[in-house]
C-alpha cells in the first residue's frame, strides 16, 4: 500500500497523525511538501517595480526562496520525526494543487487536511488548492480535521427558500442517552 501525506503549514501534524493511525505497517509512506514559487517571484516582481535600484543581488525574492527551502526541509524533518517510522520525503515546486495531484499518481491513499475555518463545519472548510486536490485526486483521499472537529450544530441552517416542506421536516432530535 502506497500512502502519500501532503504536509502544509499549520495543518501537517494532523495528517501525519492520521497516516500513522491508518497506514498498515507494510505501507510505504511518502511525506510530500510543495512550495509554490509564485510568492517569491511576486516579491521579486515587487522589487523590480522599484525603478532604478539596479542589480539583482539585493532581490528579496531570492532571500524568500532560500527561506522557503529551509522551512520546507525543517517541516519534512519534523514530520518524519513525528511519524516515527520509515518514510520517504518528497519536495516539489509548482502550483500546489497540480503538484499534489501528480504526486498522488499511483498511490492508494492521499492524506489531506482541511484548511478553512475550524470553528464551524463548513461551508468552505477547504481553501481552493485543497478543494482542487479533493476534486481531482487519482486515489482514495483521507480528509482530516487539523483540530478537533467542531460540533454538528455549527452547520448554518438551510436557506429559507430551500427549506423542506413541513411534513418532510427532520424529526426533533432524539433525547440524549449519555
Amino acid at each position: 500500500m502506497k500512502v502519500v501525506v501532503w504536509l502544509a503549514e499549520g495543518t501537517w501534524q494532523a495528517c501525519v497523525d492520521a497516516a500513522a493511525e491508518v497506514a498498515p505497517p507494510s505501507a510505504s509512506i511518502t511525506l510530500l511538501h510543495v512550495t509554490d514559487p509564485a510568492l517569491a517571484s511576486d516579491v521579486s516582481d515587487a522589487y523590480a517595480g522599484l525603478v532604478g535600484r539596479g542589480s539583482g543581488t539585493r532581490d528579496p525574492g531570492r532571500a524568500l526562496d532560500a527561506e522557503a527551502a529551509h522551512a520546507a526541509e525543517a517541516m519534512l524533518a519534523a514530520a518524519a520525526a513525528r511519524l516515527d517510522r520509515a518514510s520517504s520525503p518528497q519536495q516539489r515546486r509548482g502550483r500546489l494543487e497540480r503538484e499534489v495531484v501528480s504526486a498522488a499518481e499511483g498511490a492508494d491513499l492521499l492524506v489531506v487536511a482541511r484548511d478553512g475555518p475550524v470553528t464551524r463545519l463548513g461551508p468552505r472548510s477547504l481553501n481552493p488548492p485543497t478543494r482542487f486536490v479533493v476534486d481531482h485526486a487519482p486515489c482514495a483521499v483521507l480528509l482530516v480535521w487539523p483540530t478537533a472537529p467542531p460540533p454538528v450544530d455549527t452547520i448554518p441552517p438551510p436557506p429559507p427558500h430551500k427549506a423542506a416542506p413541513p411534513h418532510k421536516a427532520a424529526p426533533p432530535p432524539p433525547p440524549h442517552h449519555r
Binding site: E9, E67, A71
Partner: peptide, 25 residues
C-alpha cells in the same frame, strides 16, 4: 520594507507555522 523586512516576515510566519502569503503581500 521590500528588501529587508519581507524576507524576515516570511521566515517569521514559516517558523510560526503560519501560511505566509497574507503577511508577505
Amino acid at each position: 520594507t521590500v528588501v529587508l523586512l519581507t524576507p524576515v516576515v516570511f521566515a517569521t510566519a514559516a517558523a510560526a507555522g503560519v501560511r505566509a502569503r497574507p503577511q508577505v503581500y
